[in-house]
Simulated assay, not measured.
Amino acid sequence: MMSSRDQSGSDASGRWQSADDDRDYDQDEVISTRWVEETRRYREPIGGWWWLALFLVPAILALLGLAVGGDKDTSAGKSPTSSSSSASGSGSASGSATSGNGTTGGTSSVKLASAPFAVSRTGNDVTVTAEAPDQASADALVAAVEGALPDANVISKVTTVAGSTAPDAAALGASVKALAGLGDFGLGYDLKSLTAVGKAADDAAKKSAADALPAAWPKGANPAINISVGDDAGASCGTLGDAIKVAMASTKVTFGTGSAALAGDSHAVLDKVAALVKGCAGVKLAVTGYTDKSGNAADNLKLSEARAQSVADYLAKAGIDKASMTVSGKGDADPIADNTWPAAAANRRVKITVVK
């Protein structure tokens, strides 16, 4: 026989008897009480672990996104990856100092264009390389150069890129006119500095060009002017670094997206660099690769090193002593343009520096 603590049920009046504590409750009151107890659990304040998860989950997802790949071209259908390459000259100097080779100027504090540009003369051929937002702007650049050198054969490599900013046509024409008395010359802008190289017949011709060129550009352009006098090898090698800079501003070294394989016209400009270097005995080169800021930093560092190695390997095949080159990568360090599309493409570059 069960005791009263083992039983439960209702009495004749319909009141429910609890088997837990021998007390009688109205059934509706019991249901209401249990509902209050159950719902009270869900009304309790959110604990510390919930707040921690609220902040950690988005952060983990963001890190996973950054960890996938490196140096990606985020634009649809934009391949290969473009690299704006640069080099600093053995005769270059910052500020207003003037070297024995006639170098003045340094880094530009104003933006002269949204992409590298260059004008170079070899014999009677003058090549213009730049980007312009439309055909009218492109034609204006070519016309400015033709006006400065009316007897030259001007070759246009100006491309139209919607949204781009072309160099000022009047300034470009005035610069070419300032350098016209030098014979062969080069003028290049690599988004960091405007550089002019050339050979003058005498000191007077060198001074005339060096005085006129800065006046063609806005204050802050601070062009680096490296003009040698005479045709001897020593004078030419004194401007080697800046000559490489101008060459690489005129033709971009490009790579496939996320790749270290050379693409586009990279081989042609590196052949030109090799020819310049081979004329100067004992020259040492530093080849440095860079990427943009997209992707994982560790992957970008490896990719920048691989791209620099690709350039050094090609120069070695072209006749440059491997032992004369040091190769390194700096990942996304030292950007020369914004790390937003399409400007970020300029940060994917290789830099060749003449080491003193």
Rank of each mutant, 00 (worst) to 15 (best):
A140P: 13
S82N: 01
A144Y: 09
S79H: 05
S175T: 02
W49F: 00
V145S: 11
A162W: 05
S99G: 11
A148L: 11
N153C: 05
N124L: 08
V154E: 11
A93V: 14
G65C: 02
S96F: 03
D151S: 06
L179S: 09
A130D: 09
D73A: 04
A140C: 06
S83R: 00
L61K: 10
L52E: 04
G48H: 01
F117Y: 02
V110E: 01
L179T: 05
P58Y: 06
L141S: 14
L149K: 02
E44M: 09
A130M: 11
L61W: 07
T81Q: 12
G105I: 05
G69E: 08
S114H: 05
W49I: 00
V154T: 08
D139T: 02
L56H: 03
T81F: 01
D134L: 09
L149H: 05
D134E: 05
V158P: 06
I46H: 09
L149M: 15
W50E: 13
A140E: 07
S94I: 13
D125E: 14
K157P: 02
A76N: 12
T122G: 13
A178P: 12
K157Q: 14
D125Y: 04
T104D: 03
T107S: 04
V176Y: 12
T74C: 05
G77L: 08
R121H: 04
S75L: 04
L54N: 09
I46M: 11
A115D: 13
A53R: 12
V145L: 04
A118I: 02
I46A: 08
A97D: 07
A59Q: 14
N101D: 04
A87D: 10
S94A: 15
L149Q: 15
A180W: 09
G106C: 06
V68W: 02
A174R: 15
A87C: 14
F117N: 02
G77M: 11
S82K: 08
V110S: 00
N101G: 00
A67C: 05
I155E: 11
P150C: 07
P167T: 03
W51M: 08
S137L: 05
V176T: 12
T74N: 14
G173A: 07
T98D: 01
R121E: 07
G65M: 08
T81R: 10
I60K: 07
A115Q: 11
R121P: 04
E146P: 02
F55N: 00
A67D: 05
I60H: 12
Q135F: 08
P150D: 02
A53S: 09
A97W: 00
S156W: 14
V142M: 10
S75E: 03
G48K: 01
V68R: 06
T122Y: 05
V154R: 07
R121G: 01
W49L: 08
L172Y: 02
S109M: 00
P80V: 10
T103Y: 00
L66Y: 01
S137K: 13
G95L: 04
G181E: 07
A144T: 12
A152P: 10
L52I: 03
G173I: 04
S94E: 15
V128T: 06
S84E: 14
L182D: 13
S85G: 12
S84H: 06
S92E: 13
T74I: 09
S164T: 11
N124F: 05
A171M: 02
V119Q: 08
G91S: 15
S88G: 13
A140H: 08
A144E: 00
T107M: 07
A97E: 04
